[in-house]
Design a protein around this nucleic acid. Structure first.
Lengths: 334, 334
DNA sequence: TTGTAAGCGTTATCAC
DNA sequence: GTGATAACGCTTACAA
C-alpha cells in the first residue's frame, strides 16, 4: 500500500523515512511536520491530523543524529559507577535498566562509564552512583546536569530509598515479633545512607526504651559471620540482628547457624537491599526491599527534566521501601 | 595561549572547536583536517604535523552527531539482555563494563535494552545475551550486525568461555586432590553452554575410567542444597560435587555443611562463573573463573569490526577460563 | 498559521 | 595531494 501511494505520487522512496517524505505525503512543508512534533500547539488540527497519518503511513522516526547536530546536544547520558568493579553490587544492573527505560522514551542513550573512562566523549548529563565524600568536589565542577543515586548532604539532587524509614520499619517488625534484643550490624562507612540506616534503628530503639547496640564492619559477609561466632556466648535467644545490608545479613545468618542457633525461632536476622543476595540465602533473608528499577527510572526522568527544561535544581526523591518477607524473622510473636 | 592565537588571527572562537577551527589555525581546508583523521595516508607528512598540532591546540574532538548524520549511522550499540531481570546474574554488569570500554574507543555508546524496549530507537549493531533456543529465529532476522555473548550452534558469531575446558580442568583438579567420586550438578537447561560444561566433566571421567553421575536442577541454590540433604546417606567422604554454576555450588556447600560434612577435608565443591557469588560464600568457592570484562571488550571489538569494515561473519572467540582457588577443594591429596 | 532559507559539523565527490 | 561544493535530516529565524 505504501509503495502504491508513492508510485502514484511519482516520488522516490528513501530507505528510511525523513521529514521530507512525511511532508510530501501530507502535502505540507517540512516545517509543518517538524512543528507537529515539537510545537503541536502551533499547528491547526486539520493539518495535524494529516501529518500524523502521513507519519504513521511511512513509519517515520526522527533522526536523532540530525536533531542532536542542530540542537548542539549529544543525546547521551553517562551512567557513572564510581565504586570498584570488584565490589560492584548486583543491583546496579537493575538501576541501569530503570534509567535506560526512562531515557528510551526520549531517545536518549545510556553510556556506562567508570573512573577510568569518565572523560572520553561528550554527553548531555550524568547519573552518578557509588560516590564517596571525596568525589563531591569534582562532581560539583561538572558543567552538565547531574543526578546522584544515593542520598547526600552536599546539596546535589538525588534519588534514594528512605533509608531511615527502612530500618525503622524492619526493627519495628522485629520487636513486634517478640525479639527482645536488637543488635545493629552496620557498615563501617561514613556515607549518608549508613547514618540514615542507623538513625532508623536508633529511633525505634528509643521509642521502645531499649538499649542500642551498634557494631560496624566493612561490607563483607565473612566479617559479620566472624563477629557472631566470636561473640556467640553473649547472644541469648530472642536476639535479632538488624543488618545494614543483605551481605552482612548473609554472614550473620551463617554465623548463627554454624553456632547452632535456630533461625527464626530463637534468633532473627534482617537485611537491607532486597536484590539478589537475599534470595540466594537460605532461608531467604527478611529484608528491606528497595524498588531499584523504579528508582532508576526516577533518576532518568529527573535528569531529562533538568536537561530539557534547563532546570538547575529539581529537588530530591525518596522512595519508601517495603519489607520483603523471608524466613529469618518469625511469623508471629512466639 | 589559545585565546591569544585566536586574537592574533582575528578569528571568533566557538565554544567547542570544530573542523573549521582546526583548519583555519593550520591554514588548510576542512577536508585536509578530515582526511588527516580518516585517511591519514592521503595527506603529506608536513601537513599532517601541522594539523595534529592545531587539533591539539584547540583541543579538537569530532562531533559525533555530525559524523553520524553524514555517515547514516547512529553510533549506538544495543546491549540486549533477554534473560529475566529477576534472574539477572551480577556478571552482566561486568560484561557491560567491558563492552562499554571497547565502544568508548570509537565513540560508540551503549544502550541497554530488554525484550520490552528492544525496538525503540535505531542502532548500528547488537550484543545479545541470555538467549534461548527460541530466540534464534528473530535474532537471525535483524538487519544489523550481531555478536552473541554465549556459545551457540546456530552459526552466530559469539564470544564465550571455553566451557568444556573449564569443567575438565576443575574436575581434573578434584581428582588430583584425591576425591574418588565426582558428581556433576548441572543446570536443567538445553542450552549449549550447559552441554559443554557437562562434556568437560564427562571427558575427565572417561579418561580416568570413573563412573559419571549427572543430576540437573534449575539454577537455584536451594535445589542443589535440597538434593544434597535428601541423599546425604549416599555420599561418603572423598566425594566432590562439580557444579555447573556458583549458585548451585553455593547450595551444595550449604547442604553439606548442614549435614555435618567437612569441607574441604571430606567433601569438595566446585563452581563455575567466578563473579561475586563465589566470593560471598564461606568458605569461598573454588570455581572456574571467567574473564567477564575481557569477554565484554571482545564482544565490543568484534561488533565494531563488523560494523566499520562491513564484515558479515567474523568467527567466534573462546576465552580460556582459569581456576580460582577458594576453600572448597583441599590443598593437596590427603 | 504556514512556508522559505540558512546553517549545525562532518564527509564523499569531483575538480584542480 | 589538496580544496571547493553539496549533501546528510533537522530546527531556528524570519518572511509571507
Amino acid at each position: 500500500m505504501i509503495m502504491n501511494t508513492y508510485e502514484l505520487l511519482g516520488e522516490e522512496r528513501s530507505l528510511i523515512a525523513t521529514l521530507n517524505d512525511v511532508a510530501k505525503l501530507a502535502n505540507v512543508s517540512k516545517m509543518t511536520v517538524s512543528r507537529v512534533i515539537n510545537h503541536p500547539d502551533k499547528v491547526t488540527n486539520d493539518l495535524k491530523q494529516l501529518v500524523y497519518q502521513a507519519m504513521h503511513e511511512v513509519d517515520y522516526h526522527p533522526n536523532m543524529a540530525a536533531k542532536a547536530l542542530v540542537n548542539n546536544s549529544t543525546q547521551i547520558i553517562k551512567f557513572c559507577v564510581l565504586e570498584d568493579i570488584d565490589t560492584t553490587e548486583p543491583y546496579y544492573m537493575n538501576l541501569m535498566i530503570g534509567i535506560a527505560r526512562a531515557l528510551d522514551a526520549q531517545q536518549y542513550s545510556l553510556q556506562l562509564v567508570t573512573r577510568q573512562n569518565f572523560d572520553i566523549g561528550n554527553c548531555d548529563g550524568y547519573v552518578v552512583t557509588g560516590m564517596r565524600k571525596k568525589d563531591f568536589d569534582w562532581i560539583g565542577n561538572l558543567k552538565k546536569p547531574v543526578v546522584i543515586f544515593g542520598e547526600n548532604r552536599f546539596g546535589f539532587d538525588y534519588v534514594d530509598t528512605n533509608n531511615k524509614a527502612g530500618t525503622f520499619m524492619i526493627s519495628e517488625l522485629a520487636v513486634k515479633r517478640g525479639y527482645k534484643r536488637l543488635i545493629f550490624i552496620g557498615m563501617d562507612s561514613h556515607e549518608s545512607f549508613e547514618y540514615s540506616r542507623e538513625a532508623g534503628y536508633l529511633q525505634l530503639i528509643q521509642e521502645n526504651q531499649m538499649v542500642s547496640e551498634i557494631h560496624r564492619f566493612d561490607n563483607h559477609s565473612h566479617l559479620s559471620q566472624q563477629f557472631i561466632i566470636e561473640n556467640w556466648d553473649d547472644f541469648g535467644p530472642d536476639t535479632c540482628f538488624i543488618c545494614a545490608s543483605d551481605r552482612l545479613a548473609l554472614g550473620a545468618e551463617r554465623g548463627i547457624e554454624s553456632c547452632g542457633g535456630l533461625i527464626p525461632v530463637d534468633y532473627g536476622v534482617t537485611g537491607f537491599d532486597g536484590v539478589f543476595l537475599n534470595q540466594v540465602a537460605f532461608p531467604r533473608i527478611t529484608t528491606v526491599k528497595q524498588s531499584i528499577v523504579e528508582m532508576g527510572m526516577a533518576c532518568g526522568e529527573k535528569l531529562l527534566n533538568k536537561i530539557v527544561n534547563h532546570i538547575d535544581k529539581d529537588g530530591s526523591l525518596m522512595f519508601e521501601p517495603k519489607i520483603s518477607m523471608g524466613g529469618t524473622v518469625r511469623d508471629s510473636s512466639k
